[in-house]
């Protein structure tokens, strides 16, 4: 039913072994999915999914609209209940303690999670706090500015979220990933990141993901067509509307 072709997997991970905390990440794969089935509104979208994502690998979910890419991503963030099967992130089972599991992942969903009535910095500060990034207020401001710089929206730091364009808001959502860029144990779940991005932002994002993976991080990314750049460490999972996996 399912066929996944790993093209190339390992990258040198001596760097992240020094930096990544807890839970023996060297023993467990970043993401292990076992016989997973997810349904949505009564329709079975994904069935019999088995998968293992090692540190440094990217999983690219490819498929037509409505085939279940977003559903799978949201299910991995425990926002949607599983119909069958289980998964573990860094060896933490999905049935484990909520806080422990949530510390293993970061989700950038369809919605950008910019707090409409705040400016860019305040909104990201709220997000950092909810992601449990514990640093001093001064340090977090520096981290936020660095993240904005990485996504090329540093000049917009004081701007109101509601005054940003769709693409700028998307960049802001992706800047959230950079706040935790040194926590390479966190699995990035990114829903169709390339949709509203211009070429500049797309190439910035590719650089960010590539560098994250080079340091032992992993990501699950959904999208259409082919994944721009980063080909040599990507697993591609095609999902057809009838739930077939390839």
């Amino acid at each position: 039913m399912m066929l996944i072709t790993p093209i190339l997997t390992h990258l040198p991970y001596d760097f992240w072994q020094m930096t990544s905390p807890s839970l023996h990440p060297s023993i467990h794969p970043r993401l292990a999915i076992n016989d997973l089935a997810i349904s949505r509104g009564g329709a079975l979208l994904i069935e019999g999914l088995n998968l293992e994502l090692k540190a440094g690998q990217v999983l690219f979910l490819r498929g037509a609209n409505g085939c279940g890419k977003t559903t799978l991503l949201r299910a991995l963030a425990k926002l949607i209940p599983l119909r069958h099967g289980q998964y573990a992130i860094n060896g933490v089972q999905h049935k484990a303690d909520h806080a422990t599991l949530m510390r293993q992942l970061l989700l950038v969903g369809h919605r950008n999670a910019g707090f409409e009535h705040l400016n860019v910095i305040s909104s990201l500060r709220l997000m950092a706090s909810m992601m449990n990034i514990e640093t001093s207020p001064k340090q977090i401001t520096e981290q936020i500015m660095a993240a904005l710089d990485k996504m090329g929206i540093k000049p917009l730091a004081e701007r109101q979220i509601s005054h940003l364009s769709a693409g700028q808001q998307r960049r802001l959502a992706l800047a959230r990933l950079m706040l935790a860029a040194d926590m390479t144990h966190r699995l990035w779940l990114i829903d169709e990141p390339f949709n509203t991005l211009d070429d500049d932002a797309a190439s910035r994002l590719c650089d960010i993901i590539t560098s994250y993976c080079n340091h032992g991080g992993s990501a699950v990314i959904s999208g259409h067509g082919t994944m721009p750049l980063i080909p040599d460490m990507t697993l591609t999972l095609g999902i057809t509307p009838s739930g077939e996996l390839s």
């Binding site: 909520h98 510390r103 969903g109 919605r111 950008n112 707090f115 709220l126 992601m131």
Partner: peptide, 22 residues
Amino acid sequence: SRIAKDGVLEQMLISPTPMTML
């Protein structure tokens, strides 16, 4: 309604901090 629309609520749900406390 507003934070649901822009996705802040979703981020609250996946925060390690319990949703009840938030």
